[in-house]
């Protein structure tokens, strides 16, 4: 258990409940009446994640696999601090960088260069850090002379490359990626994979949510398999991937 205190990411007994509002209580009148009568708004609770445990040590790469709606993104958002857990605790040591929606924060009217600056500060970079990383980001994104062009004229691949480049060039201890490794062409995917492997080998911590089992196997040593918000299996990535394949076959 003493390893827990050294963990880069530690989730213990984490549950996340959402409320699905069936007939939307989207009116103030209803809110008012219910508040006065002390009746809560009718909503169906839905557990996106139940009693989830995860320990990721520094320098470890873990894949979260599972079908759509199994709770993969919820796990990443909890680790990122976007969601607060309903019960249990989530602890992250160091700075985390999240890529859940690629290019969240990009503004289509702004140029590539302006968006690098904007996305950078949204990801938590300081001005100095941004200046120091700027060339590396451009080199990684490889968008050529489109830097001064508004992002709305970019192809979807270029947009994704730029977003990915900013995200991975932020100085971080924990990187969270949600299905974003399927961007760009073959060459760019290869570059991303290599970048992530060298990041991991330098001691960076990585948590990815993925459908792509081959990619998960190449990048990660360990995997957790989620189904309907519950942990089905956790362990060596190869074993989990085989079990997952077998179950779906």
């Amino acid at each position: 258990m003493n390893r827990d205190s050294e963990a880069a990411v530690l989730c213990s007994g984490v549950s996340k409940r959402f409320f699905l509002y069936e007939h939307a209580p989207n009116s103030l009148r209803e809110l008012f009446i219910r508040t006065v009568r002390r009746k809560p708004i009718a909503a169906r609770p839905y557990f996106a994640l139940t009693d989830f445990d995860l320990r990721v040590m520094p320098g470890e790469a873990v894949a979260i696999i599972g079908q759509n709606g199994s709770g993969k993104s919820t796990v990443l958002r909890l680790i990122a601090g976007v969601y607060a857990p309903t019960s249990g605790t989530v602890t992250v040591r160091g700075r985390s960088a999240t890529v859940i929606e690629l290019g969240a924060g990009f503004h289509p009217e702004l140029t590539g260069a302006e968006n690098i600056a904007l996305y950078g500060v949204i990801m938590g970079m300081s001005r100095q850090e941004l200046a120091a990383r700027y060339d590396a980001i451009l080199a990684f994104a490889d968008i050529g002379n489109f830097v001064e062009t508004p992002v709305k004229y970019y192809s979807s691949g270029m947009r994704a490359r730029l977003a990915f480049a900013v995200a991975v060039c932020v100085d971080h201890d924990v990187l969270l990626l949600d299905e974003v490794l399927a961007v760009g062409d073959e060459a760019f995917r290869h570059k991303c994979l290599n970048h992530l492997i060298s990041y991991r080998d330098r001691g960076g911590t990585l948590v990815i949510a993925s459908h792509d089992l081959d990619q998960a196997c190449r990048l990660c040593s360990r995997a957790v398999w989620l189904d309907k918000g519950k942990l089905v299996m956790s362990g060596d990535v190869g074993a989990v991937a085989d079990a997952y394949r077998a179950a779906r076959a």
């Binding site: 990122a80 601090g81 999240t98 859940i100 924060g105």
Partner: peptide
């Protein structure tokens, strides 16, 4: 307007 950011990055 900033829903996408709010949903993906803790800020």
């Amino acid at each position: 307007e900033h829903a996408q950011i709010t949903r993906s990055i803790a800020l």
